[in-house]
């Protein structure tokens, strides 16, 4: 047996679109040697019951994510801008349908 047999395969993140018109959502991950292989594995692992009409696979290593430590400072510019929400605004009484 050669060494290559037991080389771990890279991880790919799988995104599934459930129905036409819906967004692709993260469903899990697979191991695969290349992108084509990853797509086939993703189909076998995550779409055995027509759970998807479209699949994306992305090398896990290619994803950049915010960290939990960022939670406060990274997102807080959004905190003090209530005027971005419709309920901030008063509508004169009597206007039922706006």
């Amino acid at each position: 047996m050669t060494q290559s047999t037991d080389r771990p395969w890279p991880v790919w993140e799988v995104f599934t679109q459930g129905k036409d018109g819906e967004p692709h959502q993260h469903t899990g991950s697979v191991h695969a040697t290349d992108a084509e292989h990853a797509l086939q594995n993703a189909r076998d692992a995550y779409a055995r019951r027509n759970e998807g009409v479209s699949l994306w696979v992305v090398p896990s290593a290619a994803i950049t994510a915010s960290t939990p430590e960022d939670m406060g400072p990274f997102f807080d510019p959004a905190n003090d801008k209530v005027y971005r929400h419709p309920l901030f605004y008063k509508v004169p009484k009597g206007v039922k349908v706006f």
Binding site: S4, T5, R7, W9, D34, H37
Partner: peptide
């Protein structure tokens, strides 16, 4: 299944 894993790896290496 070793030969399958080996072939998949060899194919990926060749393509790369």
């Amino acid at each position: 299944g070793a030969w399958v894993r080996e072939a998949a790896m060899a194919y990926a290496d060749k393509k790369a």
